[in-house]
Nucleic acid binder design. Structure first.
Lengths: 371, 371
DNA sequence: AGCATTAATGTTGCCGGTAACATAGCGTGT
DNA sequence: ACACGCTATGTTACCGGCAACATTAATGCT
């Protein structure tokens, strides 16, 4: 009777009639919220309805075996009737760990990152997790710090970082989340263990294709240098050329956008005899195609162009783009599952190799006649 | 001394030396975790360090004015030294409300939805919220229910739904989150209050442009019928035509993808004399352009093509695409702020009009000569 | 100076779970 | 028959905040 209640409606405080269970000690009685507006049922409500202690309910929920069938049945019935759902905030408070992982990203509108994120959320959902997503503006360190700060308060189980740029890495190196952090985008391979192995992203296949068409002078439209993915691709480009005894006619610097690809090619004084352009992503390849066209060069008759990513639109460019298909969703799923293993303290298997398939379309063709 | 500790290192339990504050009653002493590995400082740690009660710390944190300067200073110092950060799980448990809102979406790789989401996360961050994102597969109702279920447990402050398709709306109509829910994508305007006003998305400007170029027969490549955004755009198309005394030569059905635009145009037996094609998004316009080219028609000399969205690549299509620029990020921000107002129980101002700007590029030109 | 009043701060209890410990009931070996 | 041990279940305490109430210090007023 002495139970205080904030928004106490007069007719509240039920529970007097539900005296099914005989053995519930008085002290166990807490607030009985079942049936009250809004508030969900708790294990205490369930316990009362089933005539057992709240601990028995917890035991049931956690799959404890030693519960008598009769008791078990009563608990099950009560759970069902009250439509019980666990309160994860309470669980998190108790354990210090939640069923959420933070995801830091920026530029969600880019194909790669957003697709990786989608893969990660799928994997997260399947594991019963949700992603707490925070977007940051890399140009504003204060925003980044603020975001990190915010995530820290939410006692997350882990943190996934989707865009691996130097700015991001540096900021995260100093941040201490107290939980596992995993860089979900392409790892930076400047460690240079064996550049000719895993991280070639299908560039060998691409160059086999291009060389087979008679090309031997290439131009590269690179991504922004501070992205590890851009560096990886540039390195793969150089490595593939070197492996074939060829050398690059030049590297143009872009920022992933179609605009930057367009402007880079427009600004180049000449193409240095290159008959093929390899862009670090499809958007820049698209920009390059338009620029070439405006410079009076035909694609692919005069210049071949290839991209990386295989964005869904690439097959419908004019001309359809030859590219390297990257499975970003798989990358995202792998990233999450690696993180999850770390959260659980299990050593994860190997980093999956970053695989890419060559998709040949009409933007690459035989190199123009004898030079 | 009677304090039990799980991972009790021998030399733990400090606090004996920090007897700065004289007035702290013994009973207030809880576990002292400051300095312990991992665990963050709590208000109790701060209180002990400052020699005050935990409630005084809470008061300080909540901006309570009546604290003596001397006390205030001690608290501030302790907060800083211990690098205190509030535990949001505890706060959520207590209040039943968290600083998080759920975001349900699917197909994050699509430009519109992901850009809306980005806008929403930005607004959320500025308000001190994070978005708990869950992606669903509309084709699998069980996944959707599972996602809803998961979100319900996380006692969120609200839920934002990013993709407004019929399937989603129906599923959500029956789901009871117990918190405000807001459909963040384009609202469905079949309510038909006044179709000629807000939701014209810039179609009038587009048609003024096209009619000014001499076009009078149009073809529409629509989005999937179960998306309210697709219906809105189709309706805007029809309305704009009707307002000018023109009628549509036909509607082709796509699914937003470039592929669907391509296939729709390829499959059309003829163009019914249309000299301009208006697609419901840029991707389908891209596909349409390629299909037209393959059918031996030039864009824009023979057929003009326009899209909607102004994705970043649209300016670099061949030819660059005339389109209606939609500010998705603003839409996302508006959606979040509307939701936030509802969460706070304030009536929100009006729904912002869905505005779009006409961007004229080279894919639209004067209609071909006399018919 | 003495008492009422207000300002400043302390104590208790609760949110909803989980872990540790406590206890009642029952079978069993000797 | 009795101590022992196991099984099934109940009780207490705690996670870290916040709110309500309690208490003490400081001030005002006559």
């Amino acid at each position: 009777m002495a139970i205080e209640e904030h928004g106490s409606e007069p007719e509240a405080v039920p529970g007097g009639e539900a005296t099914t269970g005989p053995r519930v000690a008085r002290s166990t009685l807490r607030r009985v919220s079942a049936g009250r507006a809004g508030r969900a049922a708790t294990i205490y409500d369930v316990a009362l309805a089933a005539g057992v202690s709240h601990q028995t309910v917890t035991r049931y929920l956690n799959g404890f075996a030693g519960i008598r069938p009769a008791t078990r049945e009563r608990v099950e019935k009560a759970l069902k009737e009250l439509d019980y759902r666990p309160n994860l905030a309470a669980r998190a408070l108790n354990s210090g760990r939640s069923q959420r992982v933070g995801a830091i990203t920026h530029e969600l509108d880019q194909f790669g990152p957003s697709k990786i994120l989608q893969g990660a959320t799928t994997a997260a959902r399947d594991a019963g997790f949700v992603l707490d997503i925070v977007t940051v503006d890399l140009a504003r360190p204060d925003v980044l710090n603020e975001a990190i700060e915010m995530l820290r308060r939410h006692d997350l189980a882990g943190v996934l970082v989707m865009s691996s740029t130097d700015t991001m890495s540096e900021a995260l190196a100093t941040a201490d989340f107290g939980v596992p952090v995993y860089l979900g985008a392409e790892p930076d391979d400047t460690s240079g263990t064996d550049p000719s192995e895993l991280t070639q992203f299908g560039f060998p296949a691409l160059f086999d294709h291009l060389v087979g068409l008679g090309h031997h002078t290439f131009l590269h439209v690179a991504g922004p240098a501070e992205w590890s993915a851009a560096r990886n691709r540039s390195r793969a480009y150089s490595t593939a050329l070197a492996a074939r005894g060829l050398s690059s006619a030049g590297v143009l610097r872009g920022d992933w956008s179609a605009r930057s690809g367009y402007e880079a090619v427009m600004a180049a004084p000449d193409l240095a005899g290159a008959t093929a352009i390899v862009a670090a992503n499809d958007q820049m390849a698209l920009g390059a195609i338009l620029a070439l066209t405006e410079r009076g060069l035909r694609v692919p008759e005069d210049v071949s162009v290839a991209g990386v990513d295989d964005i869904p639109e690439a097959a419908y460019f004019s001309p359809p783009l030859t590219t390297l298909r990257v499975d970003f969703a798989a990358q995202g799923r792998a990233a999450f599952s690696t993180l999850l293993d770390r959260i659980r303290g299990e050593a994860h298997a190997l980093e999956p190799a970053l695989h890419a398939d060559l998709i040949v379309r009409r933007s690459t063709a035989r190199a123009p006649g004898p030079e």
